[in-house]
Every structure is written in structure tokens, then in C-alpha cells.
């Protein structure tokens, strides 16, 4: 997994590439902690290059969503496709996140 973060005013775009799974999810948790601790209010996850996600990866994204929302912000998702899209649809997350 690769990830990159771009801040533009109040908005943060977090791009995640490759595989977000039980192996790589812990790495992303520290990024989530940073975003929450900095009280970022507008977070966009660019998942266009995310090839594979499992329940562990979903758990990190849901955690981000809950914590940012608790701070009065929101998380958007862009570029969802293929296997990650199938997982999001199954878990009904496509109804939760503005996609």
C-alpha cells in the first residue's frame, strides 16, 4: 500500500493505492490519528488506485469516518471501483459516504 496526503485549506485529500488489508491497515491508522488530532474537517479519500480492501481496511476507513464526524467534519470517497466497490456496496457503506 502507498498513501499520500495533500492539504489544501480545510480540505485534506488522502490517496490510497494498492492493497489495504490486515497487513497494511495498521500503517494507515497512524495517518488517521494524525488527521483526527489535527481536527481536519473535510477529508476526501481518493481510492481510484486502491486495488484490494478487506474487512481490516474497511475498519480503518470507518474509524476515520466516525472520528472526523465526531469532530464536526465529513469524509468523502472518490474513485471507488472493482473489488473495493463490491465490498463497500456489500457493507452498505456506499450509502454512508458521499461517493
Amino acid at each position: 500500500m502507498k498513501h499520500s496526503r495533500t492539504d489544501n485549506g480545510n480540505e485534506t485529500v488522502l490517496t490510497i493505492e494498492g492493497t489495504l488489508d490486515a497487513v497494511t491497515a495498521p500503517e494507515l491508522r497512524s495517518v488517521v490519528d494524525d488527521l483526527v488530532n489535527e481536527s481536519r474537517k473535510e477529508v476526501t479519500l481518493d481510492l481510484a488506485a486502491l486495488r484490494l480492501i478487506d474487512s481490516s481496511g474497511v475498519g480503518v476507513i470507518v474509524s476515520l469516518f466516525k472520528r472526523v464526524r465526531a469532530n464536526g467534519g465529513q469524509v468523502r470517497i472518490t474513485g471507488l471501483r472493482d473489488q473495493p466497490r463490491a465490498i463497500f456496496r456489500l457493507l452498505r457503506l456506499d450509502r454512508v459516504f458521499p461517493v
Binding site: 474497511v58 475498519g59 474509524s63 457493507l91 454512508v96
Partner: peptide, 18 residues
């Protein structure tokens, strides 16, 4: 409980659903 936005415990559900 998907409405509760769980952060875990989804593995077997994914298996059974697919």
C-alpha cells in the same frame, strides 16, 4: 449490525455474502 458502522467482525459476513 451494518447500520452501526462496525469496525470489525465483518469477515464471516463477507464470506457468506459472496
Amino acid at each position: 449490525d451494518l447500520d452501526a458502522l462496525p469496525e470489525g467482525g465483518m469477515g464471516l459476513f463477507i464470506i457468506r455474502s459472496f
